[in-house]
Design a protein around this nucleic acid. Sequence first.
DNA 1: TCTTTATATCATAATACCTTAATATATTGA
DNA 2: TCAATATATTAAGGTATTATGATATAAAGA
Lengths: 112, 112
Amino acid sequence: MAQLKLQPETAVQTEIYAKFFHGLSNPTRLRIVEILLDGEKNVSQLVEATGATQSQVSNQLACLKWCGYVTSRQEGKYVLYRISDERVRTILQLAKAIVADNAEHIRCCTRM
Amino acid sequence: MAQLKLQPETAVQTEIYAKFFHGLSNPTRLRIVEILLDGEKNVSQLVEATGATQSQVSNQLACLKWCGYVTSRQEGKYVLYRISDERVRTILQLAKAIVADNAEHIRCCTRM
DNA sequence: TCTTTATATCATAATACCTTAATATATTGA
DNA sequence: TCAATATATTAAGGTATTATGATATAAAGA
């Protein structure tokens, strides 16, 4: 007899988690997160620090904000961004620890 | 005077970490990882459990293998896959905890 | 050996993502 | 109000990723 298929609920959950990880799957976004882990920054500072264009940074910040990684507040003509959940720091540390043992593998990955 | 740009080294590092997270950024791949956290499985079992096609599962397994998430061993006509680093479990738990506080936000994210 | 089952690979088409450039909005100070 | 600066949004094109279907390889048993 066929095994019960996964509840739709589970599929939705998995998609949310996948989206969450997608947030950290782009070098520019990840770099922004790393920089913000060092403290609140405005957009211009992030543009300077990442070397990406202003458009890119604003767009990726919007993505990070949507996904709950960062929050922002206006201060004068600047918009200051900061990490909204300190646990993100732990996730990154853990990832780095794992990658340390697999860096060569991952770097060479050309499949996708 | 302009601030020093990031060392190329750092950019490479960030790209590796981004690639690492990319591994978990696809629903099928993430589901496979979740299932394998429950124990070693062969490809057919993963096809059954995920509802994805055999081609999809094999391809995503190849990706996960390249990136060091899983390893495999042949046993007769089956190929058994398992998680290669238990710390992946911790990353997932952490992500789920964070998402629990931001699920609605992330689900609605249509930007990318 | 032939057939069946299990898994992997490949080509192609569809989709999603990212970059770039242009433009819009909002704040500040003249 | 006008100009300058900071940030956000949008459209278009290029690139990367994914899904699909077809085919290849490899092991097991008849």
